[in-house]
Every structure is written in C-alpha cells, then in structure tokens.
Design a protein around this nucleic acid. Structure first.
Length: 280
DNA sequence: ATGGCCGCGCGTCGCGGA
C-alpha cells in the first residue's frame, strides 16, 4: 500500500517498557502496517542508557534527548522506510533541534527533526512531552503555561519554514469535554482548564489539525488511564496524546487511531499509542 | 465494595505522574 504510518507513545520508562515497544512494533509490521516514525515520551533515563542497539536490531534509528529520572523524548525512524539518500544514521535525522530554541530549560521535553521517507516529500516531525502542570495555579502550572507560550512562538516560525509538519506527543491537555471521562468532576482542573486549552485552540487557529477528530470515533475514546482506581477497566481516561498536522498533510491523511491493546498487557504504560496513516 | 498504582533513586519513603 502506498501509505506510511506515524505514531506517538508515552512509554513511562523506556527501560521498563522496551519489551512492549519491541513487541508492538513487530506486531504492527506483522500486520503489514509497520510504524515508520514514532515519537516516544517519558524515557526517564539519560541518553547513554538508551537502548540504541536493541532498537537498531529491530530496524530503527533513534534520536534521543534524555535526562535522569524524569521526562526525556526520542524519535525513531524505520531504516527501511528512509529515502535512499538519507538511508544512514548521519542523515536520518536532518536539522534536528532538542528543546525549544530560546527557552532555557533543564527538562528534556522536545525534539524536532526533518525526515525523508521513501516516495514522499520531507516531513518536519516534532515530538513533545508537554509539562503536566500538577494543579492549576501551582508553580508547575506556571511552568506549563510558559512552556506552551514558548512552543507557540516556535511553532509559528516552524510552520513558516516547513509545509508538511506534525506535532505529536503527550500534550497533557484534554482539548474538549468529550476527551474526558467525567467532565463535570474535572471542570477547571489541570489538564482541562481554559488557560491550557487556549494554547491547544491557538495551535488549531495556526492551521494545525487534530487528526484524530478528522474521523468518526467511538464516544469515550481516550489515550491515558490512571493506574489507580482501575482506571482502564472502568475506561476512566482522558485523551491527552495527540497528533496535530499542518494543512498540507490534511488531504493525505487516511486514518488516525488509538491502539488500546498494549494497555491490556502485563505491566503496561498508562498511555496508549496513537497512530496516523498517511497516503504518499 | 467507588477504592486498590507505578517508576525512580546517593532508595527501602517521598516525589512526580495526570
């Protein structure tokens, strides 16, 4: 099929979740639906401890921004999917940027890079682990808003420079009430407050499209479920992991789904992967 | 029965996650 697939997954520790990641990638390939690019969040380790070799044996090059204990993001690209001219590690990730330019931050939360896949135009791929915010009004919430403000400025310039852009990751924002299992209980709280949702809507106003909502989806579709209180079994979740795309990609998008399966496995991440399928 | 988690570290409880 003349399509390629891009995913995002908060793995909540790459050390613990590597077997799940490898299983999931190989199962996708076995279905003849290989993942060509994936953004990962919450690696929770430094770059020197990242499993580059295991992933390369599984067919993927990795670009990593890590730190000890918290945060950390990576971009993986399937070697076989790379265009012939960029088919080695040195050229797989072009013009890459770790963290938001001009925003001084110890926390490793963003990678941007340009990837040339076979039989299609280059893609600007931005993978983010947006700050959680903890509680509205807290210091961490102020940090979340300042990070979102810096991201907005960065996105404005990136959208001018790159026509075909994807912003994927754990946004830690449920954009609308339909993305929340119990909207009444969550009114005004962290993850759903107007202050942070405003930044999501600003991104849409810039021309970015929430690809998941381009399609009819089952009600109560979520990407994260709390480990506590049997969140997954009760489907008490939120849709906070997103794939936003620029206008140039809109007409090419074939599908966007959340794969809940890995969330049913033993010792799962609390997040499920989101996948977009794009026509070449 | 409405609450029961999980990963990390100069670790064995405290913090952050969402």
């Amino acid at each position: 099929m003349n399509q390629y697939r891009i995913a995002t997954w908060n793995v909540n520790s790459i050390k613990v979740r590597l077997p799940h990641l490898l299983n999931w990638l190989s199962q996708q390939a076995a279905k003849n639906e290989p993942i060509d690019i994936i953004g990962l969040q919450e690696l929770k380790l430094t770059e020197d401890k990242f499993p580059f070799d295991e992933l390369e044996k599984a067919g993927y090059y990795s670009l990593v921004a890590g730190q000890k204990t918290y945060n950390g993001v990576a971009v993986l690209v399937r070697k076989e999917a790379l265009s012939l001219v960029t088919q080695n590690l040195e050229t797989a990730f072009l013009d890459f940027q770790k963290n938001i330019p001009g925003f001084v931050d110890e926390q490793q939360r963003l990678i941007a890079t340009t990837i040339h896949l076979k039989n299609t135009q280059p893609l600007r791929f931005i993978c983010g682990y947006f700050p959680n915010g903890q509680a509205v009004g807290s210091e961490k919430f102020i940090y979340k808003l300042s990070w979102l403000e810096a991201l907005q400025t960065y996105l404005e310039s990136q959208l001018k420079a790159y026509e075909r852009l994807l912003l994927v990751g754990d946004y830690n924002i449920a954009p609308k009430d339909q993305d929340v299992h119990d909207p009444a209980a969550w009114v005004g709280q962290n993850l759903v407050s107007d202050e942070e949702r405003k930044y999501f809507f600003n991104m849409e106003a810039m021309g970015l499209i929430d690809s998941y909502r381009m399609f009819e989806q089952a009600p109560k579709s979520f990407s994260w479920w709390d480990y506590r209180m049997m969140g997954f079994r009760r489907n008490a979740g939120m849709r906070i992991d997103h794939i936003l795309i620029s206008q140039a990609l809109k007409e090419k998008v074939a599908l966007c789904t959340i794969d809940k399966m890995p969330r049913t496995w033993e010792q799962p991440s609390d997040h499920a992967p989101v996948i977009i399928t794009i026509n070449q």
